[in-house]
Amino acid sequence: MPEADVLYSDLVFDNSQRNGGRDGASSAPESQYASVKVAKTQSKSQRDTGAKPARSKLTLERAALATLSVLLVLALVALCYLSYQNVQTRKKLQNLKGEHEALKASWSENPNGVCWKCSYGWELYGKSCYKFSITNSTWEVSKKFCRYQNSDLVKIDSLDEQRFLESKLRDKMAFQEDKFWIGLTDSSLEGQWLWVDGSPLNVSLTFWGRGEPDNWSGEDGKVGEDCVRMGEKDGAHDLRCWFDKACNAKHKCICETAAQRGQQSCTYF
């Protein structure tokens, strides 16, 4: 404990008799001196003032740590947002690439600039027009829906046609299972896949998804899966997006009909 400050004070004690001496004469006072030590103690406010620098430093450190934490959180949010934007940009580029390939194929089939046209609500590719329905129906009802419009469920004849349809469905599908019926079935004989026009499936030109067709009977238990639907919401880079499904399931569908010959002057978008 540090030594306290010492104050010295001279105190004078008067030893003379108040009622006078015996001889009636007053004697000179005798002075005695004493040293008195008075310890100076710090007040509470002084002690608090002495501790203030340490607490102030601690408060600044906490504030700096809190600021750094906020900055790290903001950086993480920004990184997540940029990653999301990057994924969306890649999807858009894939769609544009698919459309570009479709236009190239369409132009290669019309080197002389012969135009093919579709009715309102149909989309042109090559010499065919396609309609993508917006309502869900069974495979049989979907086939009737197409035939009512002088068309049929789509028959896929080439790699370019599969690429065109796969690219289109990426934007038209609302969720992963929002797939579209195509005109392929083995309902007459298991394993013998036929298009709606009765022609057999070309085994060298198929786009089955992994493990497909599997004729899974888990949903119905009896019927199995005899009709084909297609589409991948996130895109199928290898174009393999055919899946067999029970024909009584309800999906949207793709109709196809021949395009009409137009004028010699064509415009491609």
Rank of each mutant, 00 (worst) to 15 (best):
F207H: 04
M1T: 11
L65A: 15
A249L: 03
Q85C: 10
K44A: 13
C253H: 01
S128L: 11
Q149S: 13
S108H: 04
N110C: 12
A75Q: 11
G20T: 08
E225S: 14
S199R: 12
S265Y: 12
Q88H: 03
Y130T: 11
E61S: 09
Y8R: 14
A34K: 15
V87T: 04
S108I: 05
Q46T: 09
A66S: 01
I254A: 02
V6I: 14
C266R: 09
P29D: 06
V77Q: 13
R147F: 01
N86E: 04
L159P: 00
W107S: 10
L184C: 15
A236H: 01
K117C: 02
C266Y: 02
L71V: 12
C118T: 12
G50N: 12
Q85Y: 04
T59W: 07
G191P: 11
G198R: 15
W193Q: 02
C80S: 09
F175Y: 09
F145N: 06
E232W: 01
G224T: 07
A174E: 03
K252G: 01
F145C: 09
C146L: 13
S188M: 12
V36C: 13
C80M: 11
D48P: 00
R47V: 07
L76E: 01
K40L: 14
L72N: 05
S142I: 15
R163Q: 07
Q263S: 14
Q42R: 11
L71E: 07
V73R: 06
Y120V: 07
A39E: 08
L79T: 12
Q264K: 13
E140K: 15
K92H: 06
Q88F: 02
P111E: 00
G113K: 15
E177A: 14
V114W: 00
L169A: 05
E161D: 02
Y130E: 03
S142N: 14
E166R: 00
A63E: 09
S151P: 02
C255W: 04
E30R: 15
R147L: 07
I134M: 06
M230T: 11
L153D: 03
F269Q: 10
A34T: 12
C129I: 07
K117R: 06
L159Y: 08
E232A: 07
